[in-house]
Design a protein around this nucleic acid. Structure first.
Length: 297
RNA sequence: UUCUCCCGG
């Protein structure tokens, strides 16, 4: 049975649901793993019809089966259905709560997500990293610094933050314009900062008009032997554009291509155009636009 | 062997 399940799993991972279901139909001793594997395969293929069909044929769906279905509806943006299954689910697990909260977060149901978040705690269930990360995204997107700070307290109280959670905190503060708080989290990370942390922090400075701070941090990033990405340069160039740092901008653009081998994207070009255009060099701006390669993909 | 992620934020 286990080896059949593994084979089905391989087909599912290869997104070959036709072959997976062939095997599934030939199997005589299907267990819950088998069913769940198939359901999750249909869910990731966005085929909720088939997923639901299997789910309703199960005699006793376990929590993983339920969670897959909830996740599937959430990904499809059908939050009413997701919530409906969530409410009918007999033994909700931590993952169930996280799934439906993440679903509302993704679909802009911030209020519902927050309500569920408080609801789960009222039932004595502790938020974990997944929960908190969804809630922090909501605070970031809605620039709700007050809630964000409360969530920060909860993070410190409930979990040992991992790198993504730290990054969510930085992003949340940065989006709220709380640059100082963002920086405090950033510094707290000490050596475990990854590229995303650097990008989030530099982007935070850049988008709030702290051009020099952004560039300063970019320089320390390079000192730490951290490799910038195209995202980093979007922030760096936009910092230059907003700070009117024409020469620096040109030289960073050049360095991006020559030192780091990063292919310029439209975002980079638009900062560059902005930069030279705002300083009366319309000719040069036009020249850049004319020389822009068309991005194929 | 199966559930929380579309985005590097």
């Amino acid at each position: 049975v286990v080896s059949w399940n593994s084979m089905i799993m391989s087909y599912v991972k290869a997104k070959n649901m036709a072959s997976a279901s062939e095997l599934f139909n030939e199997m005589e001793n299907r267990d819950t793993f088998t069913w769940n594997t198939m359901i999750s395969g249909y869910v990731s293929a966005s085929d909720m019809e088939s997923a639901m069909k299997l789910f309703s044929e199960m005699k006793i769906p376990d929590s993983l089966s339920w969670n897959s279905i909830i996740s599937g509806f959430a990904q499809a943006g059908k939050m009413k259905l997701a919530l409906d299954f969530f409410q009918r689910m007999p033994q909700k697990t931590q993952v169930s709560w996280n799934t439906v909260i993440a679903g509302y977060e993704k679909n802009g149901g911030f209020k519902q997500a927050m309500e569920l978040f408080f609801h789960m705690q009222a039932e004595g269930r502790k938020p974990d990293r997944h929960t908190l990360s969804s809630i922090l995204s909501i605070c970031a997107e809605s620039a709700d610094q007050h809630t964000g700070m409360q969530m920060h307290q909860l993070v410190s109280k409930l979990v040992i933050p991992d790198i993504p959670l730290y990054n969510s905190l930085i992003t949340m503060y940065a989006r709220c314009g709380a640059i100082y708080e963002a920086r405090a989290v950033f510094d707290e990370m000490k050596p475990q900062k990854n590229v995303i942390s650097w990008n989030a922090m530099i982007g935070g400075y850049a988008s709030h008009g702290f051009a020099r701070e952004a560039l300063k941090l970019f320089e320390s990033m390079k000192c730490c032997k951290m490799k910038p990405t195209y995202i980093t340069f979007i922030s760096v160039l936009s910092a230059c554009a907003h700070g009117g740092l024409v020469e620096e901008g040109r030289s960073y653009f050049k360095s991006m291509v020559e030192d780091f081998g990063i292919k310029p994207r439209v975002e980079h070009f638009s900062s560059l155009v902005d930069l030279v255009g705002r300083h009366g060099k319309l000719e040069e701006a036009m020249e850049i636009i004319r020389s822009m390669p068309i991005e194929p993909d």
